[in-house]
Amino acid sequence: MTLPNPLKPNPLKPSHTKPLLDQQFLEIRCKILDLAAQLDRLTRGGEMAAIESDPKWILIQKGIALLGTNRPAKAQGVQELFSLCYDPNWPKPSPRF
């Protein structure tokens, strides 16, 4: 995410980290638990070898790994990870004046 224009300050101030953590701790815990249970469900199917090279499974693993990094804008990173490639030279239609 590009930084906002410093000449025009954003009137919305982000919440302070510590009270936010206190407030959201249970919600984040719940989401981690949900994800863990979903992964368990996949494992219980007993066919993990069958999805080892499945692009969807590879993306999920990359997404989980991204959450453990220190990079900022993780949401943007996850979005980009789950996006198709773009070719700037794609054949564009011409405007008719």
Partner: peptide, 19 residues
């Protein structure tokens, strides 16, 4: 998964049209 690519293509077409 189509959003990023599609948005870039749309903005290409908008910028490609001087009107």
């Amino acid at each position: 998964e189509d959003k990023l690519k599609g948005t870039r293509m749309i903005i290409d077409m908008l910028k490609n049209d001087p009107r």
